[in-house]
Design a protein around this nucleic acid. Structure first.
Lengths: 219, 219
DNA sequence: GTTGACATACCTACCGGTCGGTATTATAAA
DNA sequence: TTTATAATACCGACCGGTAGGTATGTCAAC
């Protein structure tokens, strides 16, 4: 049931273990895409249904209303994707700062033109819904909080092993990195220019290098 | 015709020379606020009208359709505000980097709780509309472009007077600053925490200090 | 024969947009 | 100075369409 160009969109790539077998999951993923493209408020249930072949009865059997469907998309689709793509790799990284740099480089290369048209599903939804629905805000904020903490932990680790300059605070770096990365994707989206996205990514990497102590490096 | 709490919102403060005398301007400002709160797609013309006392006939006399009203809001309200608040002060600043720092500090202090609930009108609209309407994207991108260029010019000026470290590129710093500032407001909005907004602002300032050459300073 | 998993038909509220009409002002000929 | 004309600014009832949501029915599995 997935469009032919699904794999072209970084954010829509099927992840390991994800197979749209049951009706509920079908709805969830179709809603995820529709919301990513149109935003939550403009997302049409009939559209979501039309893309899956599922009927309205089935939808309202699994979800009490549109809002709860939105919540489920955040909790069961978006959270998982952010975790697997941005948080887990960071927790597992030997050198967290280097891990962060690799993450940014990989994302910069993985994004297609369609990706920068659409922007980050987490960021877009947050921008739209945080001001008008507390349920959305809380759920989205929880994801950001997780991401933030992973970066704090990583930076703190680097700091304690003496690789960072003294004037730097882990929390501040983490906030900065999250903000810059979100802003970086926005910048790419609005300019619709992949080069600018990558250029901005390089600027973040440069920042990450600035806060590291200078040492004899090959480069 | 303005709400009592209008002056509480940084983005809704009446600017010098702005007086809502004629019908067209009334509609424009009401639409600006409605769009800022609900987004463009969810903005209701009837709501916009109800807040002004203007009728639908008047609206469609001045604007051919909702989309063109949205374009007018960008070109005549948002662009002007961004220019006056973020671009002009930068162009006029003696020391542009210091000017940038002041700007960030002032914004951090000026934002109310309501402001960080709503987020940046430019950023929110860009997130929502850039992917789905090229007319919006182009107009919003033009504003970002202006802002970006102002920062490039400022950084370049500082660089040429030898105040910046050598490894830094003006364009890269500008991209980074724009991204970080947008992301900073997003972060504040999602966490709904003024402290975090300011904390993030300080991180940007720290970055700006990192790219400046160290010199004997009073501080 | 009850329950879960749907399918179908339908409801109402509200959306952007239209359209015939009117009040006010500007222009200008008589 | 009056009066005919015309453009501007505005009014508000109304329209088709779509939105989210519901009521009722079907049917296989246990």
């Amino acid at each position: 049931m997935s469009d032919p160009d699904d794999s072209e969109v970084y954010w829509w790539r099927p992840l390991e273990g994800e197979s749209e077998q049951d009706t509920r999951t079908k709805i969830l993923f179709s809603a995820y895409k529709e919301i990513h493209v149109n935003g939550f408020q403009a997302a049409s249930l009939n559209n979501i249904l039309a893309h899956t072949g599922v009927t309205k009865g089935a939808l309202y059997h699994h979800f009490p209303n549109k809002t709860e469907l939105g919540y489920a998309v955040i909790e069961e689709v978006i959270a998982d994707r952010i975790f697997r793509s941005f948080i887990e790799p960071l927790n597992k990284a030997e050198d967290p700062v280097q891990g962060l740099i690799s993450l940014i480089e990989e994302a910069g290369n993985a994004f297609s033109l369609r990706d920068i048209q659409l922007g980050c599903p987490l960021g877009s939804l947050a921008q739209e819904m945080a001001p008008i629905d507390e349920g959305f805000r809380l759920r989205l904020n929880a994801i950001y909080e997780l991401w933030h903490e992973a970066i704090v932990k990583g930076i703190e680790k680097a700091r304690q092993s003496g690789r960072l300059i003294d004037e730097v605070q882990s929390g501040q770096v983490a906030v900065m990195v999250v903000a810059a990365m979100e802003g970086c994707i926005s910048t790419g989206m609005i300019s619709q220019d992949l080069n600018r996205l990558q250029y901005c990514g390089e600027a973040i990497i440069q920042y990450l290098n600035l806060i590291q102590k200078k040492q004899a490096k090959g480069k």
